[in-house]
Amino acid sequence: MLLDATASGVFSIAATPFLPDGALDRASIDSLTDFYLDCGVAGLTILGIMGEAQKLEPEEALAVSRQIIARASVPVIVGVSAPGFTAMRSLACGVMELGAAGVMIAPPPHLRTDEQILTYYAQAVEVIGDDIPFVIQDYPLTLSVQMTPKVLREIVMAHPSCVMLKHEDWPGLEKISTLRAFQKEGTLRPLSILTGNGGLFLDFEMERGADGAMTGYAFPDMLVETVKLMQAGERDKAHDLFDAHLPLIRYEQQQGIGLAARKYVLKKRGAIAYDAQRKPGAQLSNTARAEIDYLLSRVACRDPRASL
């Protein structure tokens, strides 16, 4: 199931479950994988920023990948971003041998010029091999690297193994429109565009030409339904469903505690046993938990899946 430019739907960014002492929670890795599959996702993306990949030892990263890939019945993309290319190549080759569909590569924060960005991706492809499909992670809010539509086009056109863009610019609607316009004029080959930012702008991102979402909102089943409604032309129904969840999506987008909030909801939904993060990690106060519970009760008025 190698990744290609026709990918669409919802690829959930998976959390990495931990026990309270910080060890990997292997039982919850299975239950979380099953949860995503039951939600109807088209794929999974693991070892991303939400997956706390930077806190894992190389052996743990492979172990998590092995367990999820073996259990999942959908394509699995693995984040392989690393400070150095040696570690990137090792993980990329390792997960592809395990059956991954492709890898995701984020630009390191020190890149500032277009030339530096283009050189970095050229070198990354040279190191991991041009036979491994890869996703560009465009997340300037966290990575502080600004990639213009023209730079993204140049990367895609220079490297046939680039098949997807994880679009997390903000504001980013015009970037999607520009990339799709490039395709209409014939200057950009087919490219899957899945969007992030917790799904915060998914409703209009779909209208601008996105193929779906690649994000970690704790109700991936809602995202799946929203995408399907949009693809079916049911605009008002899609917006009505999405709007019901928007306050909770917004709450999850808070810097610092967003992952803690998301894991708290995933625990309440039975997907994981503990909402623990590996240190360093934020913890929710009792007040924050009460706020999330209140938001869930509000969402449940229109979507019974939030009745927890």
Rank of each mutant, 00 (worst) to 15 (best):
L3R: 06
F11A: 04
S12Y: 05
S12R: 00
T16R: 15
L19K: 10
D30Y: 00
Y36P: 01
L37W: 06
E57Y: 03
R66Q: 07
V76Q: 05
V80A: 14
S81K: 01
A82C: 06
T86M: 05
A87V: 08
G94M: 12
M96C: 03
L98H: 05
G102R: 05
I105S: 00
R112H: 13
L118V: 09
Q123Y: 01
V127I: 05
F134Y: 07
I136R: 08
I136P: 01
D138K: 00
T142C: 04
L143K: 02
V145T: 08
L152D: 10
L152N: 10
E168L: 10
T187W: 12
L191N: 04
S192I: 12
S192T: 07
I193V: 07
I193N: 01
L194F: 13
N197F: 09
E207M: 06
A210M: 00
D211G: 10
Y217R: 03
A218F: 08
F219M: 09
K228F: 13
L229E: 02
L229P: 09
Q231W: 03
G233K: 01
E234F: 08
H239P: 07
A244E: 00
G256F: 10
R262S: 14
L266P: 01
L266K: 00
A271V: 06
I272P: 11
A273V: 00
K279G: 01
Q283R: 11
L284Y: 08
L284Q: 05
L296G: 04
R298A: 13
P304R: 06
S307N: 14
